[in-house]
Design a protein around this nucleic acid. Sequence first.
RNA 1: GGGAGAGUGUCCCGAGCGGCAAAGGGGGCGGACUGUAAAUCCGCUGGCUACGCCUUCGUAGGUUCGAGUCCUACCUCUCCCA
Length: 419
Amino acid sequence: MTDQQPQSEFLRTLFARGFVHQCSDVAGLDEKALAGELVAYIGFDCTAPSLHVGSLLPIMMLHWLQKTGGKPITLMGGGTTRVGDPSGKDESRKMLTVATIESNKDSIRQVFEKFLTFGDGKTDALMSDNEEWLCRLNYIDFLRDVGRHFSVNRMMAMDSVKLRLEREHELSFIEFNYMCLQAYDFVELNQRHGCILQMGGSDQWGNIVTGLDLGRRMGTPQLYALTSPLLTTASGAKMGKTAAGAVWLNADMLPVYDYWQYWRNSEDADVERFLKLFTTLPLDEVARLSALQGAEINEAKKVLANEATALLHGRAAAQAAAETARKTFEEGVLAESLPTVTVAEAEIAAGLGVLTAFVKAGLTPSTGEARRQIKGGGLKLNDAAITDERYMLAAKDFARDGVAKLSVGKKKHVLLKPV
RNA sequence: GGGAGAGUGUCCCGAGCGGCAAAGGGGGCGGACUGUAAAUCCGCUGGCUACGCCUUCGUAGGUUCGAGUCCUACCUCUCCCA
């Protein structure tokens, strides 16, 4: 929020790569970062079994923090998720059961290890969980020790609350408490680990600042807030949503190939921004790549896909995805690494219609949809458009490597394999 | 507890004098153009054993030849008052 040049490597990097949306006190924070090991945390909700690309941005901030000599803390919201954050939501989310939250937590954890080094060393990352202290709180004690520092008048003015009220949507008491708990987390982490910075997405600003405030009233050292911009694509869509759903980070929820494709299909106008945010390439390399014009920029998109995928899934997996893509798109060759679905030989012998085949392959949700796609010219069998919706798959369709290639549009392919 | 209002195509918003598979958007998917981009244009957007059949308008009943539309009860949500 200021244009002064920070001195610390940490802040310089964050600013240069476009991670900063708001910061409570750049100069003050810069000083702390220069002085020595900076401890910062980001909280993560456990509302889904995997994080998605939206959370990648905060994770990258922690990554850079560690790289520049700081100590990152990932805070799992084991406790706060039981309450539910109203920020940025129109309606209250369904209450999640404790069991669901626990299982989500376990499944989310593993992702952090890809981006951060955990351990007991000075700049090793730390994984914490606010369940540890929040679930132990005693209501009356909490109200007396912490609750008295919150002004309802001020809370009513916070966006997360105000928007609900203005739109005449319900805001339950439990959600209203969320920011108090998050604020308390910050204080707790300060006391436990000397954490003085909380980062997060821009929608977290209110919650984070509430933490600074609580800290001051409860006698912590000066705390700092830093938020990253809300990520949208150049054409305004929310980042991380595709037709199939969210772009998950867990490989069991989104295949590596699809993850690679997600980045490969970025809009031109996003390439530079994404390279800065989601890869660790040096900035001069980023500048070179994003200067490419016209079709040339596809090279930059491939680099983006490679780098982003390598960070999450490893270099080898990224290369494999790139190779599959190269074969299918650039050579038009059948890549055996495409997703494969098996069918019983007998089923084919008994007569398997194309419509059913597409449904089996999961390319089409219903035969009706398959029918419509055929009318629109969207379905292909071994790269040839299908025109007859009553066509039955025959032996010759499996002539190439014993598999039939089914496609919807240009980008979605599945190999059908008889067994 | 009292009063006022609302629940529509399982993505969202949203029209709907008793004839409705249900207007219109958004989103999405497919096609054309391109560069696996954007913008633009076109088509599609309940299911199926498909010129027919089945299931949809909060839930359950009722009135009607016929109900998203009328009546009754119930459920859920919102607002106002207490």
